Computed example of a mutant assay.
Amino acid sequence: MFYYFIRKLLFLIDAEKSHNLTFKCINSKSFQLLQDFFFTHKIPSKKITCMGLTFKNKLGIAAGIDKNGEYIDCLSKMGFGFIEVGTVTPLPQYGNIKPRIFRITSKEAIINKMGFNNLGIENLIKNIKKSRFKEIIGVNIGKNKNTNIDNAVQDYLICMEKIYIYASYITINISSPNTINLRTLQYGQNFKSLLYKIKKKQHELHKKYLKYVPIAIKISPDLSKKELLNISKQLIRYEIDAVIATNTTLDHSSIQNNLKKIYQKGGLSGLPLQKKSTNVISILSKSLKKKIPIIGVGGINSIYSAKEKIKSGASLIQIYSGLIYHGPKLIRNIIKNI
């Protein structure tokens, strides 16, 4: 009940300002002492191996909540089995104009049109090196807004080269709806070329550092069944280590009555995405035939919805909007019951 009281106050503030204020507070030394007492000792260890890595439990925090790796230590104390930071790009960029995050509270939903706002890959590396967290850190990478889509793969390769030695796994984000033309990288020859070059770079870096860092591809929930089957085929062909299903959706039909003109564009996450992402996981699970693990994300707001993702074929799961709407107790409940 205490969290819902705090949430009520935070929801009176602009969503992006509220997010920044909240994490500045929980990142303070005094709050971290409270975290040590209230959170850490109550989270059971339920280790699982996936992508050749050992996770302390199946639940992670999705990319987007900590774009620059500033809050790794305080997030780790909440009990997450892994933390995914980013999306980060080669160069710092502002992202899209504000306001760019909107809550639809009655639907437990969030619309964002952030546009990969971040301080760049070099800044992220500094923050990872400063972190005391020694468990699994995934790094979600993307392309800069000003990079032409024909040269997009180069941005991913730059990020891979720089972050490889510091990341537990790397996520290739080609599914954000908030960077123009980015999603075209999921289709046809663009997709094949991307996977080929990413795997080639992974092989080179593996040889250079004698460390194998798994690669995950994050896909859209708005793909057709035919497109998902083709993606599965290519993921197997190029021996990609995991697929993350899914990113946010451009389908706003489930919240049509709640839409205001100011936030009619952007990626929708939260409860309205729940069934859509679970359906994608089901299709992938059947087509991948356990050859490639699935990380399930999208609308997880309860023990039941977490179990549904796993039942549908996800080996690991991630939350974001669910944490915003239900607080840290959701983390403990999910970990204890899956």
Rank of each mutant, 00 (worst) to 15 (best):
L228Y: 05
I170W: 03
S312H: 12
K290I: 07
A314H: 02
N27K: 09
F11K: 05
L53E: 04
G270L: 03
N27C: 08
L12E: 14
N151H: 14
L53S: 04
N258E: 15
I303Q: 12
K329P: 07
S254K: 15
L182N: 06
K307G: 09
M1D: 14
I198C: 04
M160G: 01
S76L: 07
S285P: 00
I172Q: 03
I219D: 07
F39M: 07
L229W: 06
P221L: 11
I324Y: 12
I101V: 15
F39I: 01
I72S: 04
Y4G: 08
I310F: 04
G79V: 00
K289Y: 09
M51W: 07
E204H: 12
N301Y: 13
K145S: 12
N257K: 13
S305I: 10
L271D: 11
N68R: 03
Y169H: 01
G138Y: 03
A216W: 02
K145Q: 14
K290M: 11
I231F: 10
V88M: 01
V280R: 02
K291P: 00
G322Q: 07
L124I: 00
G79H: 06
N146E: 13
P214V: 00
K199E: 08
L75Y: 08
K129D: 12
T40G: 10
L157N: 08
S312W: 06
K162Q: 07
P90I: 00
L268W: 04
K260Q: 15
P328H: 05
K291H: 10
F55V: 09
F55M: 03
L316F: 03
N257F: 05
L195D: 02
R237E: 15
L250G: 12
K113D: 03
